[in-house]
């Protein structure tokens, strides 16, 4: 790919839009999370700020911006401040490869999923840095959990995605989308239900969400790796967590749910609708289930998801070979 000026400008514009998307997504998700939690628990949720509490997330982010950055004693200064930044920046790159619409891909690359998976691995580094640098035992335990969990859950995730890649014969997210049809029965979820299930479970594990929120399990580790972060330090972790959620939901939508394709009119609205449906599912299970234990979490991964993913990949390979 030759890096001409036009592409450069395109990337800059895309990154700016993506930052706006990340912040907007965090605002929407905080509101959705709290409202859904409220209604599940039979209370109204945010109510006071703005109509139906819609400005609550804005208020919260203002509070986080204005808060003092409190730093506990004996922290590893450079790593302590580096960790939230490392959490935030890789996520920016991840969105570049997502095809938002038929003509709306920030950076059209022909192996986008490799880009996404490569940079998604960086997120765990920030958790590790934060836990190590905080000089807090809870953070350290949380970081240790985060690393082994994220590393483990990447594998079934990749296996599930590989099955779709084998089936469509391309790593380009746009081509994978184009091979699916407009209507739900033409989406990959029909052909790859097992892969979708594996992806759905490992997506919860990968983003450290309940019931797999072991790195920040508050009844055990108070807040895990971000125990000692306040103000914007915490906000960046928060932002990147929601951005990560959005990203894996986008990938789920592209790979299994037809991406930007949908009935009547293709466009980015379908992609967003599908991604937010996946996120709603994540919020729903968070407020329903207890947390699994750590060894169980890894057992689910290594003993069930990984063999299932391999079987699925193998079956897909055979069927693709026969069909071709």
């Amino acid at each position: 790919m030759d890096l001409s000026l036009a592409i450069f400008v395109q990337i800059i514009a895309a990154v700016l839009l993506i930052i706006a998307l990340m912040v907007g997504n965090a605002v929407v998700m905080v509101y959705m999370e709290r409202k859904v939690a409220g209604f599940i628990q039979r209370r109204p949720g945010p109510y006071e700020v703005g109509p139906w509490g819609t400005l609550q997330a804005v208020c919260d982010s203002m509070k986080l911006l204005a808060k003092q950055l409190y730093r506990p004693g004996n922290v590893d200064l450079i790593l302590y401040y580096l960790a939230p930044i490392t959490a935030f920046f890789p996520v920016l790159l991840l969105f570049l490869a997502i095809p938002f619409g038929p003509w709306l891909t920030p950076l059209p690359v022909n192996d986008g999923i490799v880009l996404i998976l490569a940079f998604a691995g960086l997120g765990v580094l920030s958790n590790l840095l934060a836990g190590w640098a905080s000089n807090n035992k809870y953070s350290l335990l949380g970081a240790a959990r985060a690393v082994s969990q994220t590393v483990a859950y990447e594998i079934p995730m990749i296996l599930a995605l590989l099955a779709v890649v084998l089936q469509s014969g391309s790593m380009d997210l746009k081509r994978i989308t184009d091979q699916q049809g407009q209507w739900p029965w033409e989406w990959n979820i029909v052909l790859q239900p097992l892969a979708f299930f594996i992806y759905l479970v490992s997506l919860v594990g990968e983003t450290n969400r309940a019931p797999f929120d072991l790195p920040e399990a508050e009844s055990e580790l108070t807040a895990g790796f971000h125990t000692e972060y306040s103000g914007m330090g915490f906000a960046l972790f928060f932002l990147s967590e929601y951005a990560n959620m959005l990203l894996v939901s986008f990938v789920a939508a592209v790979f299994f749910l037809g991406g930007y394709k949908g009935p009547f009119a293709d466009g980015f609205w379908w992609l967003f609708l599908k991604a937010y449906a996946v996120m709603f599912f994540m919020v729903w299970i968070r407020w329903t289930f207890p947390r699994v234990r750590f060894d169980q979490l890894l057992n689910i991964n290594w003993k069930w998801l990984l063999p299932l993913g391999l079987i699925n990949l193998w079956l897909t390979a055979i069927i693709v070979k026969i069909a071709l």
Partner: peptide, 16 residues
């Protein structure tokens, strides 16, 4: 107890 185990919703049902 369920909140200790990570489930946040049951305590509010119990409070009803």
């Amino acid at each position: 107890f369920v909140m200790d185990l990570g489930g946040f919703t049951p305590i509010l049902y119990a409070f009803e």
